[in-house]
Structure formats: C-alpha cells, structure tokens
Design a protein around this nucleic acid. Structure first.
Lengths: 195, 195
DNA sequence: AAGGTTAGTGAACGGTCGTTCTGTTGTCAA
DNA sequence: TTGACAACAGAACGACCGTTCACTAACCTT
C-alpha cells in the first residue's frame, strides 16, 4: 500500500497544525488532516511518533508534543545539487531555535536594536538582540550597558584611562563613561526578520 | 465565598502546566490542579479566560492557549531611564523565538551561511538563515538559489538581460546564471549566536 | 435587611474520545 | 509464488469528555 515511511510528512503536518493552534487535534481530526479514514491508523502512527520521541502522553494521558517535536535541522548548503531535504541522517545539528539561542530563559531578555551604531558588526536597526543579564563582562564582549543613565549596545573595550564602549560604525566615536558604567547584560545572540 | 478574582492565579497555574507539557489538561484535571471540585466551575472559568482572550477553541473545539496566554507579566523592577521595556514588545504577539521566526515549520529550513558574499547586508559567515521553501520570489528578496548546480544565498535582481543574483559585498560581482537558475527558497530570517 | 451578583458544588447526560480487534491491500524477500 | 510484514480500513465499545441545570455560600449594593 503506502510509500515507505511517510511518517516524516505526517509529522510535518502536525507541526504546522500545532504552530497554528498550539494544540494537537483528536485522532479523528488528525485522520482528516492526513487523509486517513480510520482512527486506528492514526493510533498506530502516534505510537510510531511516540517511539521516535516526537510526541508523548501527559500524566493525564493527553497527546502532547515533546521538545524534539520543535527541533529543526541546520543544513549546510555545500551539498552538491541534491535535495538537502530528503537526507535527514547527515544533518549537522538539530535543535529548536529557542534552545539554541536561549539556554537560560530566566536570565535572558530580548531587546530591539535602535540606531546604526553597530552596523559594521552586522547589527542593524530593528534587529532583536538576545541579552543575557549579568553584571560582569569581558573585553571584546558586546554589552548592553547603562552609561550616564542611558541604555546602549556596544563592544566593551579598555585603554590606559579605563573602560570604553566601542561602536562598530566609522561615523561614531568611542564612548568614555563620564560618571558611571553599569553592565546590564551581554549580547549572546541576534534575531532578524525579513519582509 | 472566594476572594475577588482569583482568575489570574488560576491562569498562572495553567501557564505552568502548559510550559511543562505543551498541552492543556481536561476540565476534570484542571479542577484538581486548581482545587475545584466540580467541572462546571472549570467550565465557567474557561469561559471567563476565553472572554479575556487567554484561551480559545480550535476549529475542532479543543481548548488551546492564545498568543496572549504566553505574554510575560511586565516585571515591575524600577525604571531609571528608558529601561529596555520595549524588549518583549518586539515579539509581543508570538510565544517564542521559534514562533516568531518560523510560522510554517513544514516549509521552513535552517541553513548555515558560508562565506562573505553578503556581509554588507549584515549576513556573516556562520550565521544561520531561515529559509522558507518556495519556487517563486520577488525582485529584491534574498533567495537561496541553485545556480549552475551550486547553492548560494544572494539578492534576486533583474536587468534587461534577465535575472541576476546580487551579492552584498563590494569585492564580489553579480552572478548571471549561465545554464539554470532555480529558486530553492527565500530568506525570511537570520539567527546569529555569539561566543 | 433585602436582593443581586459571582464562584463554586454535585449530579445527570449525550457525545466524542482513543483502544481494540478483524480484515484488506500493497511491498518486499526468499 | 509464497509468506511475512507494514500501513490502513472499519466497526464495536467502555470510558471520559464538557455542557447543563438546580442549588448553595459569600460578597457586594442600596
């Protein structure tokens, strides 16, 4: 009957559904969604996906996605003209974007970038910076700092006279804190959305 | 009887539950969870939360959280001068970075950037591009294309002679496909990790 | 004090849930 | 060609689902 292993395709549809509704449907509806006429086929599919670690049952026996459900492959596009989609065994990395960028949620915040002072570092106006809150930083880190009562994202530098905040833009001058310099957090990631 | 408006407290428990299991339990279990003895109390609570916009029913009538369900309580630590409170506001209507960048999981892939050809667009070697697979693109889109049997990320351009692939790096020349140009997908996001 | 409002109890009920079992069909290896 | 196997169809079934209704208790107003 069926093709060899359409489970990956079925999983994709469930992922789309969950992305839309933040909930997994009943077996009957899954059947409709996937083009299956009987719930027993769905039941078997769920068992397979459960074994593969993509879904699980909550303590009260409800179907729920696992963390793995949200993982994505990162493909290198060195691949010579073969579809990178088909071969999922040789993938380098597999994780969810959240886990990748935000390993410690409780100490992490997101900050919308304003201004052009870091464009030479590939950080543009409107981008979102992932900031891990902490008060210590190393020279060379990109830091979100409070300088003279104002928040700013710059590279942390140092010279004979003390700490500096270095912009990455030829048109801007380094900032030397006159009164106070407080490190609010360091930048651990960048997020940008197009269109 | 009860205190004035414990709904906020109830919501918090549901949020915790969902964070643990990525699913909302049945009314009976919600009752246990919240210390309610009857399901009709839960039913009433769900109606209230639904009115307030924290939960909703999927098309197939299952209980599901809304985007608002995931909104973070804006922590009330003191704002000296222009605290980056605009932080969460950036992605206020999405529940996670995943959701923000990847609304349609099944047609989205992640590709590790190789090379310097797009550095003037703030896309660096080692960055991860979010690619939405599709074969049609508009002029000006950043596209992952297969040109003469090789994958490349460039801006899609056009002149009198036809389509072009434009790098964003002064040291690179535009690419004019000699044999074939196939659009593999368009770039909808960028992810970078520091350190 | 009376009356309204709101949150919750408890029981009854029809509908839907997911499981299970039997049967069918297409694929693959011997 | 045969037999094993996997994916799926279809029907039956008990359990659990969420709704509804009548009722109670605490808290407003006035």
């Amino acid at each position: 009957m069926g093709n060899p292993n359409r489970d990956h395709e079925y999983l994709a549809k469930l992922q789309d559904y969950f992305a839309s509704y933040r909930s997994l449907p009943s077996y009957a509806v899954i059947g409709e969604l996937l083009g299956m006429a009987s719930k027993s086929a769905v039941s078997a599919l769920i068992k397979r996906l459960s074994l593969a670690g993509f879904v699980e049952m909550t303590p009260d026996k409800r179907l729920a996605p696992t963390k793995r459900f949200f993982e994505r492959e990162i493909a290198d596009f060195n691949v010579p003209a073969g579809l990178p989609a088909a071969a999922n065994d040789a993938m380098s990395d597999s994780l969810s974007v959240d886990d990748y960028l935000i390993p410690r949620p409780s100490s992490t915040m997101l900050v919308r970038i304003k201004g052009e002072s870091m464009i030479d570092a590939g950080i543009f106006d409107g981008d979102i910076a992932v900031i891990e809150k902490r008060h210590a930083a190393s020279i060379g880190d990109f830091v979100l700092a409070v300088v003279d009562n104002e928040y700013t994202l710059k590279e942390l530098g140092r010279d004979k006279q003390g700490y500096l905040l270095l912009p990455h833009n030829r048109d801007f001058q380094p900032i030397r804190p006159t009164e106070s310099l407080e490190i609010y957090g360091i930048m651990t990631g960048l997020i940008r959305k197009y269109r």
